[in-house]
């Protein structure tokens, strides 16, 4: 009898334990609608050429971005390139779904589809290792996930060369991206941390928010490249050093040139204290 009670007790404890684990692993699956209020000027209109403030770039990244010409997006080979995983949440709604092992019904991966530019990725949850460096690199990279309490931590490697921001700031194919998915009720916050040994000096951190949208249907994003400009084949648009006329565009917003150049120091509050007081526009005389 005592043995039977012990067995039942152990079984209940085991169930509670399992339930406890399941409770900690928040269900992220479903439709998610993007909330654009955070950093809206950077995500909607976008930062201007030469506007690098607050981003921990190194001198190489700055030099590359200063040669960047927006027309590079017009060449057929670049027209349908989607955002890479570190820019994935700039625009568009998304869907997350579970991918299960049929015999065990264990979740072995999470699928994720972002509406904007049809970005689709798989986050492996089955403990598999990342492949060797000689495996192909992709826009969304190779992602593995693990639960840290109620937070999903996703690590991504094997990324293609892409952009840190839309004004030509580069992010190399050697970068690693770590994301934290945090769900609080109907709000999903994703923090993205980019570490790039080639073009940044410190990790670059961003957060983006989504709201649960159970009735949402995602749009398709069909994209097929075409020659749209009659010009010499294989043209590569870029500015030669010192010839880019757009780099001071950010000064229209009243930002000093020293801040526009970016770099890790410009991301910290202490930097603002080193700047001269902004010039105030002349006020009309009071009568």
């Amino acid at each position: 009898m005592r043995s039977a009670i012990l067995r039942v007790s152990l079984s209940l404890l085991a169930l509670l334990g399992v339930a406890g684990v399941a409770h900690a692993q928040v269900d992220l699956s479903g439709e998610w609608g993007l909330r654009m209020h955070e950093d809206q000027p950077w995500r909607g209109p976008g930062q201007l050429p030469g506007e690098f403030q607050g981003i921990p770039i190194n001198a190489e990244a700055r030099a590359k971005a200063e040669s960047w010409m927006a027309s590079v997006y017009t060449i057929p080979e670049r027209q349908c390139i989607p955002f890479s995983v570190d820019m994935a949440y700039t625009f568009g709604n998304m869907r997350i779904w579970k991918i299960k092992d049929a015999p065990s019904q264990e979740v072995i991966a999470l699928g994720q589809h972002n509406e904007w530019q049809a970005q689709e990725r798989t986050i492996w949850m089955d403990g598999r290792p990342h492949p060797p460096e000689w495996a192909p690199h992709t826009w969304q990279g190779f992602s593995t996930g693990e639960w840290v309490g109620a937070t999903l931590k996703v690590t991504t490697t094997h990324l293609k060369m892409a952009y840190l921001e839309r004004n030509g700031l580069p992010r190399s194919d050697q970068a690693t991206v770590v994301e934290y998915y945090m769900r609080h009720g109907d709000v999903l916050t994703i923090a993205t941390i980019v570490t790039d040994p080639v073009y940044t000096t410190e990790p670059w951190v961003r957060t983006r928010n989504y709201g649960a949208a159970p009735n949402q249907e995602l749009n398709a994003y069909p994209c097929r490249p075409a020659v749209e400009i009659d010009r010499e084949a294989h043209t590569v648009p870029h500015y030669l050093p010192g010839t880019n006329p757009t780099l001071d565009a950010g000064m229209r917003n009243g930002l000093p040139r020293v801040a526009l150049r970016g770099g890790a120091e410009t991301a910290y509050p202490e930097f603002a204290k080193t700047l001269p007081a902004p010039a105030r526009p002349a006020q009309p005389e009071k009568k």
């Binding site: 699956s29 869907r95 779904w97 579970k98 991918i99 299960k100 092992d101 049929a102 072995i108 991966a109 699928g111 589809h113 689709e120 990725r121 798989t122 089955d126 598999r128 290792p129 492949p131 060797p132 495996a135 192909p136 992709t138 969304q140 190779f142």
Partner: peptide
């Protein structure tokens, strides 16, 4: 390697490719 290319609700996975 690139992905399990499917878009939809919860899905059952094919046999995973061997790890490289």
């Amino acid at each position: 390697f690139v992905a399990l290319a499917r878009t939809g609700t919860d899905a059952q996975a094919p046999a995973p490719a061997p790890a490289l």
